[in-house]
Design a protein around this nucleic acid. Structure first.
Lengths: 199, 199, 199, 199
DNA sequence: GATGAATGAGTCTTCATTCAT
DNA sequence: GATGAATGAAGACTCATTCAT
């Protein structure tokens, strides 16, 4: 439910090694607090302390609390985006089934790596006033699936891609929430839903 | 991401008409703020003002801020739970297809009635330290679906019911988020996913 | 050097006696700190403490630190404005000399009552982004002098009134700064400057 | 409203050309920020950046933020002081009127050169804990005027010089504040006030 | 019971100053 | 000497909750 224009971008990208370490430490600290205690517990003092830096340093890199969380969203979305893009690129001359399996691997492993964090970041996305670029990362994934479906002559690929992304997310989120860890099992079930939908 | 033991229940259920009106006004005010401005904007002073009562009165009914939101979750969960239960009861001697259509009607119309609120309440559920009873409401829905699937000899009904509830939620949430309003269209797509899964 | 749009008005005017006492206590505390330690020492915690109220209470009445100081400016400007207006009104059928003496009495006694405060408030005026109404209070005084000069056929009353107000302020400020306390002496010297200018 | 004993002097006067350039760049940067955004916006990081040096270098020359502003005050005061002194020296064998005109030229042009800066520096003077030497610069000007008045047998030259300096400042400040730029016009009006006073 | 004034712990953020490289 | 990353004390402001009237 974005509303106003809080600064949402890092103040500066680190150039030197030391600075990069500080930058990363801050992001990782925020991620840890987010997955352990939830959105409301992410406060700049706690993040700085866990990162082992002073608040002052935190504010050298991030102009607002929100910008830290937004950067975290960007970072994790980007990781997934790249997996999805390379899967779709790789799959251009493969069967639809093979490519979808690769995509589902990406989605499931991405969610299961740090399930609490993945869940919490979805919350953050809906709370923060994210900018176009960041929201575009999410859209990119839908777009890639649409490209894939089109290439394989699936009818109404726009609607189908949106629904598939949504249902996969639904099942994978629920699995993460239920603290399931068996990726193969989850994969099998998501697979059933996706291919059922497409059948 | 529940953490500590904040009071999560109303201080007392209203007995008299006037008290009930106040109680409801507070819940509705919280709902309005939640759907309009999001979780972070729900604060007791704002809720009391919008409800047209003093903070003092608000605290007569609700011991903590969390108890207001928790009660809101309970209320909306309950509405859905009752629709689901009656659908399943009614469907005991109908075809699986007919009953599932009824369930999906319930789910879709529930979400689309106040889509912003439905979405926000899901956030609240994941932020608040809800108690067993409240969480049980969610479980009840899964249980009902499982009963239904069992009654129709679907294999592995436990897993299937969880997945179906999850994928329906995934698609319906995404539709709400995308501000779609055509319930019939959404129903058709969710239907495709569910029956595809079951096929 | 006003720049942006900080809130500059009280959140609410007190209605009850207790509230009025709090409101006044806050203004007086701000005034005391201002005259004793200067603009930079006026901070909301210090003001609240000296006023004997909590920061929370302070913020019930004043939305920003600036709004406290702005209200203080308004209050003191208003006092002077009223003295000036009544002097000019009273003087409509008197000689110019008599009326100017009355005005100078007002100006000198106003400045000498709390000289440090008067000086500090002039600083505040130049630092704060005051609104039109507040700035109009200052203008009112020039306007009144202009009316007076016009009524007595002084040539170029607009320029003269501005210059007279400015030179009076210059001398009276300097006297306050030099911790002079003999109002009669100051009056005599300001008188000499004003009548010299008009001669 | 001086309070404590912050270091108020440069760490060292620059001896080499490059150091002098840095020193001046810092002062000029502070002046620019002061006149553009006001006292509260003068912070050491901003000054260093605008001056094109690192904070570290800034602190090589100035031990505290205050010392920068104090030096700025000293610098501009000194410029005026020298004009005043040479005017008075030159005027020793001229008429009072001629000399005063020269003094007023100095005062008016000094103020109108960078009016925002002149005004801001007056604020700084009243905020900063300036030391005796610096305050003495102001006194020097009064003293010079007193010498002049004495030399021309004006009665009570001490009081008169203080009043004249004060009323000139009052009118000239007001003109600067009103963004007037016609130096001749201002000169004419100040002249009227001064000679009126002396008449 | 109802009111709303009062409380103060908790957060965000800035900026003068230091110091390792 | 110069650099700029790091520090942390200080200050503005919010909001859940209490309690005198």
């Amino acid at each position: 439910m974005p509303k106003d224009q809080t600064a949402i971008h890092p103040r500066k990208r680190p150039r030197q090694a030391r600075a990069a370490a500080t930058f990363d430490a801050i992001l990782e600290a925020a991620a840890r607090i987010l997955e352990k205690d939830g959105f409301d517990s992410v406060n700049t003092n706690a993040v700085a302390e866990l990162a082992g830096v002073s608040v002052g340093s935190l504010y050298q890199y991030f102009p607002t609390k929100e910008s830290i969380l937004a950067e975290l969203v960007r970072f994790y979305r980007n990781v997934l985006k790249e997996k999805v893009e390379s899967a779709v690129a790789w799959g251009m001359d493969k069967t639809l089934e093979e490519t979808i399996d690769l995509l589902l691997d990406a989605a499931v492993s991405h969610q299961l790596e740090r399930p609490e964090l993945a869940l919490a970041l979805e919350q953050v996305e809906s709370i923060l006033p994210l900018d176009k670029e960041t929201l575009a990362l999410t859209q990119t994934m839908v777009d890639n699936v649409e490209m894939l479906l089109s290439a394989h002559n699936v009818s109404n690929p726009g609607e189908a891609s949106r629904d598939i992304v949504a249902l996969v997310r639904g099942i994978v989120d629920a699995a993460g929430l239920a603290k399931e860890v068996d990726q193969a099992a989850i994969h099998r079930r998501v697979r059933r839903a996706v291919f059922g939908y497409l059948a």
